[in-house]
Design a protein around this nucleic acid. Structure first.
Lengths: 179, 179
DNA sequence: CCCGGATGTGTACATCTGTACATATCGCCG
DNA sequence: CGGCGATATGTACAGATGTACACATCCGGG
């Protein structure tokens, strides 16, 4: 029974799980698929993550942390001259123009929280943390929360429809809706 | 082989499928689960809907149609005195205060479109149709699209966090973000 | 140095799934 | 009223899955 000592294995399994979700969706996540992707035996995935939920939790934790780190950096680079809504529109445009697969993966895991009780606190924390980070820029939390919601909705709308993103029209539309 | 003539069976199967998704999520949707819920034999579900995708498509079509009908009625009852954003905030508040299970079901099916190619056009059409309906009130499509995105994001945020909904703070926040 | 617990491995089992299919039964149209 | 196509039914099969478990191997602390 050849065996290799592998201190990073747990982490590699998480990475493989994220890869499986990216490739086949949450529906395609299984201990066996992850084991194959990580090139470890089946028993190894069940040892480190006894249930599939454990794997999902670990995957979402890692994806959220990555996103929040990027988001925090982005917020800190803002100069605060333009209206905050314009900054957010630029963020959405950049995100949609970037690695589409990554965005879809993040949203799939994130939205799975609607159904999976153990994922919900993670998604909720991620939302709260985004608002907290964005509040550095807007100065207050309610404004930040409104903008986070707007960004989320825009992201979904364009992921689903594939329609070209038009920041100016959206900004003007939003302004018009408030009078 | 006792058999009953049952002209409404196809419809009952769709209703049962929606019920199964509401109860166990899309992950729990199977021909057998639907057959049990509709009280028909397995072969009957596979006859009317050869693949699970066919069932999903029929379910989302029906759920979307129901939501759009409600949404259209709601739009037509607006008087147009307040800013459109306030109308939308009221809609979100009412929806969140209503049947939570129904909202979660609608979002689960709707968001599944991110992964299921055959659901995507349905979700995209639903989004477009909502914007078209709301444009009756706002007068133009970009404004309506911005508001639909805002409403979607708010809905998700509150479904995920369970935080109390505060329309005034959100409205003021949005206004502040635009200057 | 040595032993106990952590880590790794292979396998087995019961369960559920999609799907196909042969057969039975009905409604309707000519 | 006869038959044909649509509808209904039960069953079978191959494959995938979660999970448990017995056993092997390694590492680090006493």
């Amino acid at each position: 029974m050849a065996r290799r000592h592998d201190p990073e294995r747990r982490q590699r399994i998480i990475d493989a799980a994220i890869g499986v979700v990216a490739a086949r969706g949450i529906a395609g996540l299984s201990h066996r698929a992850v084991a194959a992707a990580a090139d470890v035996p089946l028993g190894s995935t069940t040892y480190h993550f006894a249930t599939l939920d454990d794997l999902l939790v670990a995957a979402l934790e890692q994806v959220n942390a990555g996103w929040l780190a990027d988001f925090g950096r982005w917020v800190d680079e803002l100069d605060g001259d333009a209206p905050a809504a314009d900054d957010v529109l630029r963020l959405v445009a950049d995100t949609l123009a970037g690695d589409r697969t990554r965005v879809e993966l993040e949203y799939e895991l994130y939205l799975a929280a609607l159904r999976h009780p153990r994922l919900r606190p993670l998604a909720a924390d991620c939302l709260d943390e985004m608002a907290r980070l964005l509040a550095r820029r807007t100065g207050d939390l309610p404004t930040a929360r409104a903008l986070v919601a707007f960004a989320d909705g825009l992201m979904l709308q364009h992921l689903l429809t594939g329609r070209p993103f038009e920041p100016d029209a959206l900004r003007d539309g939003l302004t018009a809706a408030l009078v």
